[in-house]
């Protein structure tokens, strides 16, 4: 393993995004490029209009559902664990446990192994494959919830709080704000696991991705579009919508709506209160502080590059453990969790 081949010499930030020189490809570029490797379908990672796109089959399907004609010019699907050569590099995708199809990109060159993990979480998610630990020389990690205050409770407890509230307030409609890709389907599956077998009512904007998940084998039970039901019939029911719709005129038709939001940000009360949320549900598709630090311990990388979030706290943690930490400023990251919830 030669010092000259150190990844900081060949995996670099450019105006388009993170670029791998010996492989001549970008990972999650935020501007159109010739060749893009995409970790997952969230809009802050998967942008439209690239020429050639490499990702898991599920991620490609998600991108096509979202962007239609602008999804890209040509597509190459790669199975988890399958490895291919891109330029001088060897590349493989392994599950990241973030949303359906999400992957870590493992790149090897010159005797060095780098893992670009994209977004990830470590807890079980009934809608996607679990995160796989790949020991490496450089680990590139997100830091969305990289403060010790972020500790996501077990999902089942949060779902239980929602169902308990429905039983205490059966005359109200519970409106749950969820991100359209991943969170919506995960919350639906968790509700099904908790025994909620009534129809779930969804905002029209959630429909295409829910249908895609079903088509890809993630069963969601009976879903109905909320606006097709009569508002007064929805008392005691659970509705799911993008967080922005909770404040929108859309929510008016329903019986005395009780606004809930499922997000890791709900951990901090002041934040939830500012958003007029009456029932904050702490359900996140990103690793919390303990998952992040546990992952850094398990991949055993002597060097960690930190992107979007509270980089400095995670870098401080690395320093205390003799790991070399470095902040990597990628533009436009973290949007899916920051989406305005007014």
């Amino acid at each position: 393993m030669k010092r000259e081949a150190h990844p900081e010499n060949w995996l670099q930030i450019t105006p388009q995004g993170l670029y791998c020189r010996p492989g001549d490809f970008f990972i999650d570029p935020h501007r159109p490029v010739e060749r893009a490797v995409i970790t997952h379908g969230h809009a802050d990672h998967a942008r439209p209009d690239h020429h050639r796109v490499l990702a898991t089959a599920e991620t490609l399907a998600i991108i096509q559902t979202r962007y239609g004609d602008r999804a890209g010019h040509s597509f190459q699907a790669l199975k988890y664990g399958e490895s291919i050569e891109l330029g001088e590099t060897r590349v493989r995708l392994v599950p990241a446990g973030h949303v359906l199809g999400s992957a870590q990109v493992v790149v090897e060159w010159g005797g060095w192994r780098v893992v670009v993990s994209g977004d990830y979480k470590r807890r079980r998610d009934p809608t996607c494959a679990p995160f796989e630990v790949v020991p490496c020389d450089v680990f590139v990690t997100e830091a969305t919830f990289a403060l010790p205050v972020f500790r996501h409770p077990p999902d089942a407890e949060e779902i239980h709080r929602l169902l308990h509230s429905v039983s205490v307030f059966p005359e109200r409609s519970h409106l749950v704000g969820v991100y359209a890709l991943g969170k919506a389907q995960r919350v639906i599956r968790l509700l099904r696991e908790a025994g909620w077998d009534r129809p779930l009512f969804i905002h029209g904007a959630l429909r295409p991705l829910c249908e895609l998940y079903e088509a890809l084998g993630v069963g969601l039970g009976e879903l109905r579009v909320a606006t097709e039901a009569r508002g007064e019939d929805l008392a005691g029911e659970i509705l799911l919508a993008p967080p922005s719709a909770l404040a929108d005129r859309w929510s008016r038709r329903f019986a005395d709506p009780l606004p809930a939001v499922a997000s890791g940000w709900m951990r901090v009360r002041q934040r939830a209160r500012q958003r007029n949320v009456e029932l904050p549900l702490i359900i996140s598709d990103h690793a919390d502080w303990q998952e992040l630090t546990r992952t850094l311990e398990e991949v055993q990388a002597p060097e960690v590059w930190v992107t979007h979030g509270s980089e400095e706290a995670l870098i401080h943690w690395c320093r205390l453990r003799g790991i070399r930490g470095r902040a990597l400023s990628l533009i436009g990251r973290g949007e899916e969790e920051q989406e305005e919830v007014v």
Binding site: L147, P148, V149, V268, Q270, S310, E312, A313, H316, W317
Partner: peptide
């Protein structure tokens, strides 16, 4: 880490 957390949460 405690101080940064306190700064972030404020309570």
């Amino acid at each position: 880490l405690f101080r940064w957390s306190y700064d972030y949460v404020g309570d």
